[in-house]
Design a protein around this nucleic acid. Sequence first.
DNA 1: AACAGAATTCAAAGCGCTTTGAATCCGTTT
DNA 2: AAACGGATTCAAAGCGCTTTGAATTCTGTT
Lengths: 346, 346
Amino acid sequence: MTLKDLATLLGLSPTTVSRALNGYPEVNEATRKRVVEAAKRHNYRPNTQAKRLATGRAMAIGHVIPISTQHEIVNPVFADFLAGAGEVYARAGYDMVLTIVPDDDEERAYREIRSKGNVDGIIVHAPKIHDTRIALLTDLGLPFVVHGRASGVRAPYSWVDVNNTRAFERATNFLLDLGHRRIALINGIEGMDFALRRRRGFERALSARGLVADPALMVSGEMTEAQGYAAARMMRGLADPPSAYLAASLLSAMGVRRGLEEAGLVLGRDVSVLTHDDELGYLKNGAQEPIFTATRSSVREAGRRCAAMLLRKVAAGDQSPETDLLEAVLVVGQSTGPHRALQKTG
Amino acid sequence: MTLKDLATLLGLSPTTVSRALNGYPEVNEATRKRVVEAAKRHNYRPNTQAKRLATGRAMAIGHVIPISTQHEIVNPVFADFLAGAGEVYARAGYDMVLTIVPDDDEERAYREIRSKGNVDGIIVHAPKIHDTRIALLTDLGLPFVVHGRASGVRAPYSWVDVNNTRAFERATNFLLDLGHRRIALINGIEGMDFALRRRRGFERALSARGLVADPALMVSGEMTEAQGYAAARMMRGLADPPSAYLAASLLSAMGVRRGLEEAGLVLGRDVSVLTHDDELGYLKNGAQEPIFTATRSSVREAGRRCAAMLLRKVAAGDQSPETDLLEAVLVVGQSTGPHRALQKTG
DNA sequence: AACAGAATTCAAAGCGCTTTGAATCCGTTT
DNA sequence: AAACGGATTCAAAGCGCTTTGAATTCTGTT
């Protein structure tokens, strides 16, 4: 069932039918109703490819998912991010196109996407501190929104990001207020912008109280359970071990917890653990009451925001850069408590 | 730069240029070379939409990602599965189109995909025991491959699946051989086909030794850390607690571990834990030596297989159903050991 | 009753590519 | 040297839709 078929069936021209279905004003309301009904009755759906060719719009948004060539790892937050973005696309009638690209080959991938013309815009994932994709995409003139930011890039661009610095500053302050002075930071991979910002927030809070971060208490790497476990195991054995741990992901925090409980330490009493929580669907931080005290910010919501912003840009023909800074909330769970020295007093 | 531009530039007709680039035989080799070089030099890329309209092939594969309306959860294995499938599509020049659909609205989604005609085939994820999508897609005549199977569907269809029954039968036998008799099963959601098969394998191994599964030792639900923890915590307190746990995912197993270690139990000595491991990139079961004894089967590889199979079907015009049964390997880690009663003898 | 102008509808061109059927070229054959 | 057939190349139609510019039909006026 093509547009032409439907038109013949109705005794109308394809022009009128097309206009009726696309809500153009220059068509009689009675006619429109007739057309819309016939379309529904005959289960007519305009052919996507034809529409795309005719309008020059792909009606699709591209997501380039980089795969680390060293770690062969897919960032576990993608699933939730895509779920959020997907909701928005679906509502707007857009497709979501995924491209999996080894992270040593991204530039070529973006160029190809541009010239193939199968998407109207792109979401940039996991920006590095000095991310080259931003300049590239600006150059290519392809609308894009970055999920995160790139501290090393001066030129303006559109992004949606969590206030990582502030979140970690607050988290650190929270621990400092509880009397902790030796605080460990189990961070993401150096080079990733979000990891840099989180460390900055951490250090800023410390230095505001005249403290300085101990390099021995900072690790960075893939945020896995194993990472957290290894870090906690190593640090708990130090001569002057941390009394609190700040982790960058729930998975890491779970590893930290294991490393500490293994040594007979009780979270919230003997030692504190605070983590960032992306609110992933399959990794809940407790049902009602949170298990870990955490800075919480939904990745899924970030996905929605990114998608909505990009669609706005696409509709408006790019326009001036837009930004959206989400604040994480600090939720208090059972994994933190006052420093031991303070507990007797309490 | 369009095909026409390129043709004019070369003093050739669009026909010849098109044929030269697409490898048709009726074009002079010298001409072809000239065309290919010019195309590269001018960075020519055929417009995807135009190509699609002309050929009638979408050059894209659809993945419908159901989102549980109750749990708002995105299956955490998707990311890795898509990574695997994406590799294959990229090599074949296919796009991957994701559609996020609430799981109460799937039928409409599939019908719409079909009539919009923007994909050449579909991968069906997370089949239920009586999955209606299989009949629907067969009906719609859209090529598809199921990742998993639906025990309740009699008609033949194409699928790629892990031999879940066998994996869990072997796992159970492994534990039985170690002297365990009270074995707990921490399973996925009832209703999912894979969960049914796993339970079957579990029960089959038990009954082969004249044992019968104790309902008190079986739980099923979302495979989260919290699930595992809750189950272990509850079961360890039973009058006759299990001496071994069989978990359906690494996340669950991590929860089980916590629930057991919390009670001072040492894995591999006091109690055994065996889990299924999907080899997710961000959830490694140890680096070299596995932490958990596990039945291991890569979801990413399953993604590759599904994609390759579907591309074959699309190329061949569907054809007869193809199936691919992957066997999980049983890797021995540190989380299992002989039943305590047997250890003194050892 | 005739006409301007708004309201509708239509014919046809075009989006950039593939593909069919015809045309041209060129080395052989007789 | 004319005819033949394979090798190349080309013109044009078509994929299913949108959109421009023109044609037709309705209104309300005068």
